[in-house]
Computed example of a mutant assay.
Amino acid sequence: MIKLKNKIPKLILVFCLFFLSFVSAQYNYYDLDRDNLEDTLVLEEGILKVRFGNKTSSSFELPEITALINTKIGYTNPYEITVYYSGDKVLYGTINIFYKKDWIIKNVNFYNPCQECKDQNFKILTKNINLPVKEVDPEIFEIDSKGFKSLTFLDNKGIINSYKDPKKLYADLSNYPLLANSFNESTISDFKKKVALSQSNVDVYNNIAYRLTENGNQKVGIDLLQQIIEKYPARIVAYLNLADSYWSIGDKESAIKNYKEYLSLMKSQKKDLNKVPKYVEQRIK
């Protein structure tokens, strides 16, 4: 009994040491000014507030990335702040910031949302900045309706190789409009070779073409739609999408020609004419 009692305190001590080491491992320690005193961070409504260990305070507003509105502090090391930006549909990025007499943005990282890629969190871009926050040009983070203006969202090289299922490509084009900008003549040629147009995939072909044109890449979208019409001349919706694409780039002559063919097929195939968009007849007048 005496030996057992002696062992119990030792077991408790070992457990306590293990627990403390575990808690310590989970604890994010910051020493941003490298003075061997712990600093504390608070992020509130886009303002990052830092209280240095020597009791002085500093704060600055994070760069605004419109499409990535949610921010939180991550942890890389004691001398650097990682801020995570996130939007909807898994799009996210990080900004790394450090302190050296001033707050400096080290780099910006963005991540690939590709559904077919082995690692869906694959980092596709690191843009080194290394400038004080106050000197960073806001256009670096500027975004329009199609995505990031100044940063390459996806690399053209090997983009098609990531997609075994064209339905996933359509889904990504729907979720990430900027992906359309990565398609050029070479890319679409690779796509045609990898995914040959057939009766079984003509619908998704048409949908991909539609998304490409809707997201601003009319040239490649028109290329696909013309291929569909050549192989399946009775496919009604392809004529409508093709006409809309031509209209959007100002080629009204080609647009009207395809609008008329679309209407003709709707009538000859006895489709519901009430489903014809009202703008069609207005445009062919």
Rank of each mutant, 00 (worst) to 15 (best):
residue 160 I to A: 05
residue 162 S to T: 10
residue 163 Y to F: 13
residue 163 Y to P: 01
residue 163 Y to D: 03
residue 163 Y to L: 07
residue 164 K to R: 11
residue 164 K to L: 10
residue 165 D to I: 11
residue 166 P to F: 09
residue 166 P to M: 10
residue 166 P to L: 13
residue 167 K to Q: 12
residue 167 K to I: 15
residue 168 K to W: 03
residue 168 K to T: 06
residue 170 Y to I: 01
residue 170 Y to R: 14
residue 171 A to I: 12
residue 172 D to P: 06
residue 172 D to S: 10
residue 173 L to D: 01
residue 173 L to W: 06
residue 174 S to V: 13
residue 175 N to A: 14
residue 176 Y to H: 13
residue 176 Y to W: 15
residue 177 P to A: 09
residue 177 P to M: 08
residue 177 P to C: 02
residue 177 P to Q: 04
residue 178 L to F: 08
residue 178 L to W: 08
residue 179 L to M: 14
residue 179 L to V: 12
residue 180 A to G: 03
residue 180 A to F: 08
residue 180 A to E: 02
residue 181 N to A: 14
residue 181 N to T: 11
residue 181 N to Q: 14
residue 182 S to F: 04
residue 183 F to K: 07
residue 183 F to M: 07
residue 185 E to M: 10
residue 185 E to S: 15
residue 185 E to N: 15
residue 186 S to A: 11
residue 186 S to P: 00
residue 187 T to C: 01
residue 187 T to Y: 03
residue 188 I to E: 05
residue 188 I to M: 08
residue 189 S to M: 04
residue 189 S to N: 14
residue 191 F to M: 15
residue 192 K to F: 06
residue 193 K to C: 00
residue 193 K to N: 15
residue 193 K to Y: 06
residue 193 K to R: 13
residue 193 K to P: 00
residue 194 K to V: 01
residue 195 V to S: 02
residue 195 V to L: 09
residue 196 A to Q: 12
residue 196 A to R: 12
residue 196 A to D: 00
residue 197 L to V: 07
residue 197 L to M: 09
residue 197 L to G: 03
residue 197 L to P: 02
residue 197 L to D: 01
residue 197 L to A: 08
residue 197 L to W: 05
residue 200 S to A: 13
residue 200 S to C: 00
residue 200 S to P: 00
residue 200 S to H: 09
residue 201 N to L: 08
residue 201 N to H: 06
residue 201 N to W: 09
residue 201 N to I: 14
residue 201 N to K: 11
residue 202 V to Y: 11
residue 202 V to L: 15
residue 203 D to K: 15
residue 203 D to L: 14
residue 203 D to S: 13
residue 203 D to F: 15
residue 204 V to M: 05
residue 205 Y to S: 09
residue 205 Y to Q: 08
residue 206 N to E: 12
residue 208 I to Y: 04
residue 209 A to K: 07
residue 209 A to V: 08
residue 210 Y to H: 07
residue 210 Y to D: 02
residue 210 Y to S: 08
residue 212 L to W: 04
residue 213 T to D: 02
residue 215 N to R: 11
residue 215 N to W: 03
residue 215 N to S: 08
residue 216 G to Q: 06
residue 216 G to D: 05
residue 216 G to R: 04
residue 217 N to H: 04
residue 217 N to S: 03
residue 218 Q to T: 05
residue 218 Q to E: 10
residue 219 K to F: 04
residue 220 V to M: 13
residue 221 G to K: 03
residue 221 G to V: 05
residue 222 I to S: 01
residue 224 L to S: 03
residue 224 L to A: 04
residue 224 L to M: 12
residue 226 Q to C: 06
residue 226 Q to P: 00
residue 226 Q to S: 14
residue 227 Q to S: 12
